[in-house]
Nucleic acid binder design. Structure first.
Length: 212
DNA sequence: GTACAGATTGAG
DNA sequence: TCAATCTGTACT
């Protein structure tokens, strides 16, 4: 959980950052509990020229103003009246671009390792296929990962390079051959030209990449 | 003030 | 395939 990603990491174009984020860990502190998840799927929304972007045409509203913040700030919003979507702003201040975090693979933290080691019953559960399957399913979508990490409007604009309750860390090295790309999800309203752009990135054959 | 649709999800 | 559920945004 060490080696927190710094400002320099995020002040780059979202098309770069979205790929670099694969394999990185999101660490979330809730009271004395720590949750961590490996980022396995992202989408880039690279700027105001992108018709699928909330900031299309340099549109700036109370809802999307966090997109304009310097790289490393959280842009979070509600869709369909019930699901939060976690984005991280990238690039320079004043230019609206961001990366949508679409899926995480939950990581067994040291904390839970110790708890498991001290409790043989939990050890058995951890080994069971059932447990593995359920672990892989709690954060395999943008709405689900926010529910799992307990993220909501209160994180709007949060600086992940400074925050004490959420940050990103180095995680695991992902080699380019392990990265796949495809069209972004759920943005058909933007028209085929933009919906077809291969700006969704994910780790090949990872079980936590979102379905559909 | 009112209408409308959405960067999703899980059930049928 | 469809409804749930709600708020930002646009328009009367």
């Amino acid at each position: 959980m060490k080696r927190r990603l710094n400002r320099l990491f995020f002040v780059k174009p979202s098309l770069q950052v979205s790929k670099l984020l694969l394999g990185k860990y999101i660490v979330r502190k809730i009271g004395r509990k720590t949750l961590a998840g490996k980022i396995v799927e992202t989408e880039a929304y690279p700027g105001p020229y992108d018709k699928a972007s909330h900031a299309y045409g340099i549109k700036k509203t109370p809802r999307n103003r966090a997109e304009y913040l310097e790289g490393g700030h959280i842009y979070i919003y509600l869709v369909y009246g019930m699901y939060w979507q976690l984005n991280i702003s990238t690039g320079k201040e004043g230019y609206p671009e961001c990366v949508l975090i679409r899926a995480l693979e939950p990581i067994i933290t040291n904390q839970s390792r110790i708890r498991i080691a001290n409790n043989p019953e939990l050890e058995n559960i951890r080994e069971s296929k059932l447990e593995m399957d359920s672990r892989f399913c709690v954060a395999n979508g943008p709405g689900k990962l926010c529910r799992w990490l307990k993220l909501d409007k209160s994180f709007y604009g949060e600086d992940v390079t400074k925050s004490k309750r959420i940050w990103l860390s180095q995680g695991e090295k992902i080699k380019p051959p392990q990265i796949a790309s495809g069209p972004r999800i759920g943005i058909d309203y933007a028209g085929a030209k933009w919906a077809k752009k291969p700006w969704r990135f994910y780790i090949k054959s990872n079980p936590c990449v979102s379905k559909r």
